[in-house]
Structure formats: structure tokens, C-alpha cells
């Protein structure tokens, strides 16, 4: 089978691999790179469990070929925590009990981060609309929406706090 060489940056590390053109991005992440944090749910682009960021915007990695990511940057759920701990969205999900079985969680968190990037202060309806592409079959939406709202408030509070600190002072 003809293979194509791709170079993709995933979670900050550059990888060069030979892939079949028909290999899906989610397969590449899970099977070639071993990044099994990104899940395959419906495999038909409905459920959003496979959501990752491509150059910073949310996409469904089951509905994209790995070759299409050649030269691009992919961020998965495994790449969002910093050296000092969880990503604020992960913390918000944790604190608000925004997961039951947890299967939809990686995709929900990746979609939620992108949602706040586009709209840092969404109301409840905007959050529900923004997460339209992600299904939670435990139907735990209430706490997921609460978590996203809480992450938005935490970020807003930080920005406000930052603005009141005079330049040159330690924060």
C-alpha cells in the first residue's frame, strides 16, 4: 500500500511518520502515537468524543485524514495540562462533577476550551449551542454547562484581577 510521509506537531512534539492516506487522524493519534486520551465514540462525526484542536480550533478527528494534518499542529486532551497542573477547564469539570462515565469528557473539554476562546463570556444558551457537536449519553449536560460557565467566570476574575494590579508589581 502506498504510504505518505507526514510531519505533524502533536501536543508540542513534532512527529514524522509514514501513513496510509486512508488513515483517520484519530487512528493516527491513538494507534501510531499511543495518545489514547482521544476517544472514538460514534465514528460517524456525531458524538464529538474524538474532538481535538487543529491549529487551535476544534475539529472531529474521526472525520479527517491524518494526511490532511500534515504540516499542522494538533492538540489533544493529553496536551492541555501545564507544568503546574490541570488546564482550568479540566479543573472546572473536576470541581463541578461534569462527568459521569467520562467517555465524552475529553471531547467535551476540547470543545469547551474552543468555545471560550471564541466567546469568553457565554450565557447558558450559548454554551448549550456551542456544545451541540458533543453528546453525553449519561445526559450529564447540566453540570457540563455549569463547569464551562464556572471556567469562564474564573478566567474573567483572573483578567479583572490582573487589570487592577499596577504594572511592575508581582501578581
Amino acid at each position: 500500500m502506498v504510504q505518505t510521509t507526514i510531519t505533524v506537531t502533536v501536543d508540542g512534539t513534532s512527529y514524522t511518520d509514514q501513513v496510509e492516506p486512508r488513515m483517520l487522524l484519530v487512528q493516527y493519534l491513538r494507534e501510531t502515537l499511543g495518545k489514547t486520551g482521544t476517544l472514538i465514540g460514534c465514528d460517524t462525526s456525531n458524538c464529538g468524543a474524538c474532538t481535538v484542536h487543529l491549529d487551535g480550533v476544534s475539529v472531529k478527528s474521526c472525520t479527517m485524514f491524518a494526511v490532511q494534518a500534515d504540516g499542522h499542529e494538533v492538540t489533544t486532551i493529553e496536551g492541555i495540562a501545564g507544568a503546574d497542573g490541570l488546564h482550568p477547564m479540566q479543573t472546572a469539570f473536576h470541581e463541578n462533577h461534569a462527568l459521569q462515565c467520562g467517555f465524552c469528557t475529553p471531547g467535551m473539554i476540547m470543545a469547551s476550551i474552543d468555545l471560550l476562546r471564541e466567546n469568553p463570556n457565554p450565557d447558558e444558551q450559548m454554551i448549550r449551542d456551542g456544545l451541540e457537536g458533543n453528546l453525553c449519553r449519561c445526559t450529564g449536560y447540566q453540570n457540563i454547562v455549569k463547569a464551562v460557565r464556572s471556567a469562564a467566570e474564573t478566567e474573567a476574575a483572573k483578567v479583572e484581577l490582573g487589570a487592577t494590579i499596577p504594572v511592575g508589581q508581582p501578581s
Binding site: 476544534s58 475539529v59 472531529k60 479527517m64 456551542g130 451541540e132
Partner: peptide, 9 residues
């Protein structure tokens, strides 16, 4: 059209 992720692609 569809959902945010699909509208990105």
C-alpha cells in the same frame, strides 16, 4: 449547519 467542529472543517 451541523455543529462548531464541523463548521471549522
Amino acid at each position: 449547519v451541523a455543529d462548531p467542529q464541523i463548521r471549522h472543517r
